[in-house]
Design a binder for these strands. Structure first.
Lengths: 322, 322
DNA sequence: TAACCCTCTGACAACGTTGTCTGGCCGTCC
DNA sequence: GGACGGCCAGACAACGTTGTCAGAGGGTTA
């Protein structure tokens, strides 16, 4: 910038004015400055600008894993909003590891992101307190923050969706409905288990529940064990997209009632089509980002807790008779 | 930092030394400083650090769309390497729009990213020249840069993969093999078309080729038109993952030979399983990031052009008889 | 005892911007 | 003709860090 000023024969500040489109510059001077800028290939150093102004025009996003379609969709939607607001997105995957989540947030904060969108891996977020107090807003998505933190949150109707899924299977005549879910330490898994249990009522049988995550071996084991029971399950409720797919592989063509949480591509092309309770990852990302920007615009109201509806999509597997 | 210095009763510079783990600080003093840091919840302002040191420890990534599994996988692998190097990743989706690609790169450069990884949407990258000359290295992935730019590049063996796919169908008795591809203006699409053509030799028939992208309507139209020919195709080669899926939907259960470029989840669970030529998105991301960091470490050698092998995975659809 | 070295600490400038303030010039109005 | 206001332009400090250099104090050596 100094070079540009010298080249154009004006003061530093005048160049700054031109670059920022501030008023009060003679058009002829401005033109001369612009010409010098082009000639020297100058581009403003955002770091210095950030340092001076305090706003980075950057938002940090922490998710589980970009390679998971659910989070990829969420990520894309967040990005869309962020770019639309003239900001940039720093993102990172926690890989379900609380330590890494924390490390990412810490790093983002050190870079003075204007705001954070977090899909938490852990359940202790007290480390966020100083940042929040310092005025960096945060929005939690998909899962709520740990106790003691009251911030904007966007969740799916996990329990309701699970109730609906299990209710659907019950309505199609199933009484023995198994559930495969993620570790109950994960909020969404616990909620879905609760919904499952609520829908089953007295039909609930703990032998038909396995909450050990999507690893193929454990899914395989659990299914085998359940199917060997005296009264084996005639239907299955899977607690997330990964589990649905893993279970489909483990079942290997054996036909049984199946409803999965999370929609996935090609669910309609399998035979039978896979009935799912679909979440709206893009909607979740969009809403979270919009909430964040509302805070950044100065909204100091009480924290918002949005619950997004889910949608049962019958495709065949959930309508199979027992 | 100034506050910390005051609180600990030392000079600014001493705090800086402690924060950066520089030697030459009395352990007792360092402890006092650390205590003050904890008490005040201080965290270093990276913007100022960047301004002073010139390195941002940030890498910019431009892809088509995070929500596309191929790019999600690539993205994740890049992230892994970048974080491993202690850097952060700024990413953005171009959505196949050259203007947006350019805008993203421009913004990244204004933020002084240390390096760029680009999946280009356009084919004119002369706008990168100043940045490259200024010492910001760039690596192109999945598609090469436009003419006149000689930078590190990581590509899949597109033509070879297409040849192998079509050869596989030929070997299983097909003579009328159609191709659905993306617009030939996209490098990978053109390469795959070339491979298809080379494999077919005299059997090539332009009426069996449609390069109009993955929009369902056009795929539907094209397939209908081809199947109505006097000698309709008995097999299909699809030019990317999206097209494969769209084509599967359009075919709606009609059995015909099929090999798709790009692997996708559940390809093995469909009936028949879908034979594919699998790329390695994670490998591509990893290699691209590693190349970039090699440059950042000072490697000034001639530009590297890596071609990643692809792998044919027979699953049934490519082995159907005519 | 003087000269020296070593360890630890601090003062200061600089990185590239932007906000604030001041000043010169010109035209207008009393 | 003097006072005033508006338009431009520039000088300067400040943002929070780090690199450079200098200095204080204590121990060792000649």
């Amino acid at each position: 910038m100094k070079d540009v000023a010298t080249a154009a024969g004006v003061a530093l500040k005048t160049v700054s004015r031109v670059v920022n489109g501030e008023p009060g510059v003679n058009p002829a001077t401005a033109e001369r400055v612009r010409e010098a800028i082009d000639r020297l290939g100058y581009s403003r150093n955002e770091s210095a600008r950030v340092l001076r102004r305090g706003r980075t025009a950057t938002v940090g996003l922490v998710i589980e894993d970009v390679a998971d379609p659910f989070y990829a969709g969420l990520s894309r939607a967040v990005e869309e909003v962020v770019i639309g607001e003239g900001c940039l997105l720093l993102s990172g995957s926690s890989g379900e590891k609380p330590a890494r989540e924390r490390e990412l947030v810490r790093t983002f904060c050190a870079r003075r992101v204007d705001g954070l969108i977090v899909v938490p891996a852990g359940d202790d977020h007290s480390y966020l307190r100083p940042e929040l107090d310092a005025g960096t807003p945060a929005v939690f998505a998909d899962r709520p923050p740990g106790p003691g933190l009251d911030v904007d949150t966007v969740l799916s109707d996990n329990a309701g969706g699970a109730r609906e899924a299990v209710g659907h299977l019950l309505a199609h005549g199933h009484h023995r409905i198994a559930m495969l879910g993620d570790h109950p330490s994960i909020y969404t898994a616990a909620e879905r288990l609760a919904g499952y249990r609520a829908a089953l009522g007295p039909l609930f049988d703990s032998r038909l529940v396995a909450m050990r995550g999507p690893a193929p071996e454990t899914v395989w084991d659990d299914l085998e064990r359940m199917l060997a029971l005296d009264s084996p399950p005639t239907a299955l409720f899977t607690g997330n997209g990964r589990l649905t797919v893993t279970a489909l592989r483990a079942l290997g063509g054996r036909r049984m009632g199946l409803v999965g949480f999370d929609d996935f591509e090609l669910a309609d092309l399998l035979t039978p089509g896979v009935t799912v309770v679909a979440q709206d990852p893009a909607g979740m990302g969009r809403v979270a980002a919009e909430l964040l920007f509302r805070r950044l615009a100065g909204d100091g109201g009480p924290s918002e807790h949005v619950e997004l509806p889910v949608r049962l999509i019958p495709r065949g597997s959930g309508e199979l008779p027992p």
